[in-house]
Structure formats: structure tokens, C-alpha cells
Design a protein around this nucleic acid. Sequence first.
DNA 1: CCAACTGTATTACTGTTATAATACAGTAGG
DNA 2: CCTACTGTATTATAACAGTAATACAGTTGG
Lengths: 134, 134
Amino acid sequence: MLLQIDHHSGQPIYRQVAEQIRRQILAGHLAEGEQLVSVRELAGQLKVNPMTISKAYGLLEAEGLLERRRGVGLFIARVRPDRRSAGKSQLLEQILAKAVAAAVQFDIPETEVHALTERLFERYSSRIRRDEHE
Amino acid sequence: MLLQIDHHSGQPIYRQVAEQIRRQILAGHLAEGEQLVSVRELAGQLKVNPMTISKAYGLLEAEGLLERRRGVGLFIARVRPDRRSAGKSQLLEQILAKAVAAAVQFDIPETEVHALTERLFERYSSRIRRDEHE
DNA sequence: CCAACTGTATTACTGTTATAATACAGTAGG
DNA sequence: CCTACTGTATTATAACAGTAATACAGTTGG
């Protein structure tokens, strides 16, 4: 599991970690029942305190996305497909709504937003294709 | 000037204020040379400490969007049209890029993003029409 | 000059975050 | 049983960011 943390983003580490894992779970990159890397392991990888990771996992457990079994490890919870789908839509809509709000305020026409979206899609899709080849 | 601050958003007040004024300047709702409400006045409206507002204005001054004259007040700086246009595009692209990144990660097709964008445009445009009637 | 308004620097308080060290709690396997 | 893993709670410390209170500094107009 590749995680990146930015110490200068202003966002606390534990939330960055939680956000990235949350997305991977929603995207289905982590299957139900799958075991996650241990607290100490991930803390070692990211060169961060174990309690910081535990705090991140705590957020996800509160959302019902994973289960913690003391002495055993961390496991992806059963997320019903409809809930996962809803979670994805909701997250996307939240972000997209900000973009549309800005466009309306700036008097940028919808057609231009569509065009920009298209360009960004090309950019991101090609980046993913590149990553998959590594 | 209508400003709203959310004490529970996690975002610091001074950045919320700066962001909202920045957008109004870029949108052209505040004309060049126009005087802004004073630090104490705005602080009073928002029930916030004057220094918090001063800090927000400081960000905007650093960006060249306004000028501060001690003893006199705050004034919208001359912003060249091309810079303003670039500022708007850049801000929109930043936000939209996050949405596209999420869509790609969640394997949500571009067509669906377009459809959602359309729906959001309708929602926001009607909200603005409603506000203008008040 | 001085009153009343501007913005601002200084200082201090507070909450959050991150870290560290330690000890505890539960499970699996030899 | 005991070792070696799991995750967790506690406590203390440090650093930092945000906010606030106060006092200071500059301008204007009577």
C-alpha cells in the first residue's frame, strides 16, 4: 500500500493517512476481510509515531470501514456495495460542488468547465496508465 | 459585503475570510480603488478579533490584491484583467483537478461527471437567481 | 492640538498535533 | 506456558497555529 504524507500541507498526518486509506477502500482496491499492514509496520514505513497511525485507523473504524482486532490485526470491514457506491458519489459530489460554485461565481460558462474536465481526465488517466507500467 | 464563517470547518477563520474576499475581487464584484470595510468593522460583524481580520487582509496584500494604508483604510488594488482571468482559471482548475482525480480513482466514467456537473450548475445558478431577488 | 477613526505589533493564552516512553491487553504458535 | 507478535491506553513533552487583549502608530478633520 503506497501512502504519501506531506508534512507541509497543513493537514494533520493522521487525517492524511485516514483519507488515503478511506479512498482505497471505497475504490475497492482493498478487498473485504483483507488484512492491513500493522500499526507499527506502517508507522515504520512512514517514519511516524505508532500512535499517530492508530489514531488514523480509529477514524476509519468509527466510520465502519475497518475492524480492529487486538492481538490479531486490522481488517477491511464488509462494506455493502450500495454504501460504497453512495460513499463514492457523495465524496465526488462534495468536491465537484466546490468547483461548480467557483465557476458560477466567476461567471465561467458550463461549456468551459466541461472542456477543462475533459482535459483533466486525459491527464489523470494517462498518469495512471504510466504508473501501472512501473 | 456578505461573509460567512464556519467555526466547525477546521479551516482557520483568517483563511476563510481571505478566501471569500479573494474570490469577490477576482470575480470583479469589488472595483479597483474601492475601499473595503475596516478591520474593526468587519471584526465586529463577524464577532471575531480584529487581528484575525488583519491577518486575512495581510494574505491578500501579499498577493497584490489590495493595499493597506495605516490610518486610512483598505483599498482594492489595480488587478490587470489578464492576471485576474488567470487567477480565476487557476483557482477553478485546482479544485476541478481534485474532483477528476477522485473520479478516476473511483472508476467513475467521465460521462457521469459531466452529468453531475450539469445538475450542480442548475442547482447553483438557481440559488444565485434566488439570492439576487432578496 | 486633539478626538476619532484607521491599521499593526506584541504578548499571552489555548487547543491541537505529534512524539516518546512505558505499560497494558489480547492472540497465535512453538 | 511463554515468546512474539498484534492493538491500546496513559502520561509527559514539545512545537505550533489560531485567537484574543492590549497598547501602539499613522491619518484625517474639526
